[in-house]
Simulated assay, not measured.
Amino acid sequence: MLVEYTRRRGIRSPVTDAPTFRVGKLAEARQADQNGVDISHLIDRSYNYHSSRELHWHLADRLGLAPTAVTLREVRAA
C-alpha cells in the first residue's frame, strides 16, 4: 500500500530538542488516479512526529499491516 502525506510544521520536542512535524494530509495513492483517497481521518493530525519512520510504523500499526506492506512518500505542498 502506497501512502502519501504532506507535512505541516510542528514544534521542537521538549524531550529531544529535535524538530517535529504534523501531517497535513494523508492519502492512499492510486495508480490511475493522481489525487488518491483521503485517509487523514485514520490518524490524529495534531500529533508531532519526530520522523517519517515514526509515521510509517504508526500507519502500519493503524492499518493492521506489516511495516513492509506500507510504503510512505512525502508530497510537497504546492
Rank of each mutant, 00 (worst) to 15 (best):
M1Q: 09
M1Y: 05
M1I: 04
V3T: 09
E4W: 12
Y5D: 09
T6H: 03
T6A: 06
R7K: 13
R8I: 08
R9G: 13
G10H: 04
I11R: 14
I11F: 14
R12S: 15
R12L: 15
S13L: 01
V15T: 10
T16W: 12
T16V: 13
P19K: 11
T20R: 04
F21M: 11
F21N: 09
R22C: 14
R22I: 03
V23L: 03
V23R: 04
G24P: 08
K25S: 13
L26Q: 04
L26T: 07
L26Y: 05
A27G: 06
A27F: 15
A29C: 05
A29K: 15
R30F: 10
Q31N: 11
D33E: 04
Q34N: 12
N35L: 12
G36E: 00
G36A: 10
G36V: 06
G36D: 05
G36M: 06
V37W: 00
I39N: 06
S40H: 06
S40F: 01
H41G: 05
H41N: 10
L42C: 02
L42A: 00
I43D: 10
I43W: 10
I43E: 08
R45Q: 14
R45D: 13
S46W: 06
S46C: 13
S46P: 08
Y47P: 02
Y47R: 15
N48G: 03
N48R: 02
Y49I: 14
Y49Q: 12
Y49C: 12
H50F: 10
H50Q: 12
H50T: 11
S51K: 02
S52P: 04
S52N: 06
R53T: 07
R53Q: 07
E54D: 07
L55F: 03
L55A: 11
L55N: 00
H56L: 05
W57N: 09
H58C: 13
H58Y: 12
H58S: 12
L59H: 06
L59D: 07
A60K: 01
A60Y: 01
D61P: 01
D61Q: 12
L63V: 05
G64I: 10
G64L: 08
G64Y: 03
G64V: 14
T68I: 11
T68R: 09
V70M: 02
V70G: 05
T71W: 00
T71P: 00
T71V: 11
L72P: 03
L72F: 03
R73V: 10
E74C: 13
E74A: 05
E74Y: 09
E74F: 07
E74V: 09
V75N: 13
R76Y: 13
A78K: 14
A78V: 15
A78H: 15
